[in-house]
Design a protein around this nucleic acid. Structure first.
Lengths: 241, 241
DNA sequence: CGGACGTTTCGGCGCACGCCGAAGTGTCGC
DNA sequence: GCGACACTTCGGCGTGCGCCGAAACGTCCG
């Protein structure tokens, strides 16, 4: 009882950090996995710099955000992958209501965000689904009895020049499903998801669009996805399967 | 921007439901997977019945809880497994601080809760870990590249008289890891975890202690765990490995 | 039918918190 | 050094919300 009492206040304190609309908007923005300055977040959330400063202080004190001071700037980012996953999960649980994206302008070609973007540190959007499905189709990822890379999958990463065993750090799972809120199906996250995204950016398969989390698939990326995963070059542009 | 704005308020609204200590305590209590009456929850949380009634109204309206009226009673339970997982995840993220359970009285034999309990609808506590480890050791559960049942694992369930394919409903994963806040390691949750827990209760492997979520392993359960998983009969009493 | 009981509705109280603008601190660049 | 700039601290204001007790509502049981 005493124990649960303590757990109750800890849970409430954690939830309270995300229970404010301004702080929630900040955390969602930080889901792109990058560090933002306090001022950028203030403008993004539409509040005065002083207000943003107080919010960031709370989020850092609560352990949700990590900060790094550089000169007159205060950079903040999500504390770690585990925290990012928590925000994702909450957003996914809260998100479902807008079930009908019926606007023709949006449904037609789809926005750049819907096509390809990062979700903290891995690929998401239609590109994320495309890659996840291709991995599954080729027997590199097993989704039938859970969500795990097969031995062939690990070798596939090695062939790409990515050493997953070395990338594995701490308790973070090698592969886990991440359900984001535009596509409704899970895509690859975890150590392998992060490694793949890092490799894709490093190898020029895709580049960031502007300052946001949206990505653009390059010509090199199109051929790479075709040779490594058998994904048709125009698959990303085609209507959602 | 507009879109993220909406996502922000949705996230904040969801988090606000758990941001109150009283509501948090209620949700944690409901993690035992059973339905409680409004009065029970009021007493458990230490607030007036009128206050509890308002809180429950919010939680139900927010979709976290499902209610069932029976005569003059109002029974509530967590809305679904997905919601339970969300509360679990938040509690696990909030919990870690109490890192040192050094009290001799607790560390020695351990409380009944620490030994065996339910976590929503699956086994948790030392028993949960014991079973998960045994499944892994026997090659029925693969944790090396993710968290998934092997084909042998599915057959093992069949041998137990549990048809996992039939139990599989909707999008709920067959096997997923659940990290609870007394043991620090993941144990089996998802459809398979729920089926195993259901089988254990139905077959008299364990019984509920009182009205809470604590479980007691029976003599029959001890032999069953030994024959089916090779778990030593006194393993549950031994100090944490 | 009437009393016991679980639950709900309604005021009313008080605190906690989010917001801002103004003023202060520290860093950068000329 | 001296402005420009990013951020922080500090009052002060308003609102939202959690709490309770009193009273109303429904159900159950004798």
């Amino acid at each position: 009882m005493v124990r649960d009492d303590h757990a109750g206040s800890a849970l409430a304190a954690l939830a309270a950090l995300l229970a404010d609309e301004t702080r929630a908007a900040m955390c969602l923005a930080l889901l792109d996995g990058r560090a933002w300055t306090a001022g950028e977040l203030a403008r993004h959330a539409g509040v005065a710099p002083s207000t943003a400063s107080e919010h960031l202080g709370r989020l850092v004190a609560g352990g949700l955000l990590a900060e790094e001071r550089q000169g007159r700037h205060r950079y903040v980012r999500l504390a770690d992958a585990r925290t990012a996953q928590l925000v994702e999960d909450l957003a996914a649980h809260a998100g479902p209501p807008p079930a009908a994206p019926r606007t023709l302008a949006q449904a037609g070609a789809g926005s750049a965000m819907a096509r390809a973007r990062t979700c903290y540190d891995h690929l998401a959007g239609r590109l994320g689904i495309l890659v996840t499905d291709a991995l599954t189709r080729r027997g590199l990822l097993d989704q039938s009895n859970g969500f795990a890379l097969t031995d062939e999958g690990v070798e596939w990463f090695t062939g790409l020049g990515v050493d997953l065993a070395a990338a594995r750090t701490g308790r973070r799972p090698l592969a886990r499903p991440c359900l984001d809120w535009t596509e409704r199906r899970p895509h690859l996250a975890g150590v392998a998801g992060a490694a793949l995204c890092g490799h894709a950016l490093a190898s020029g398969w895709c580049v960031r669009i502007g300052s946001g989390r949206a990505l653009k698939l390059t010509a090199r990326g199109r051929t790479a996805l075709h040779t490594h995963l058998g994904i048709a070059p125009d698959a990303l542009e085609a209507p959602t399967a």
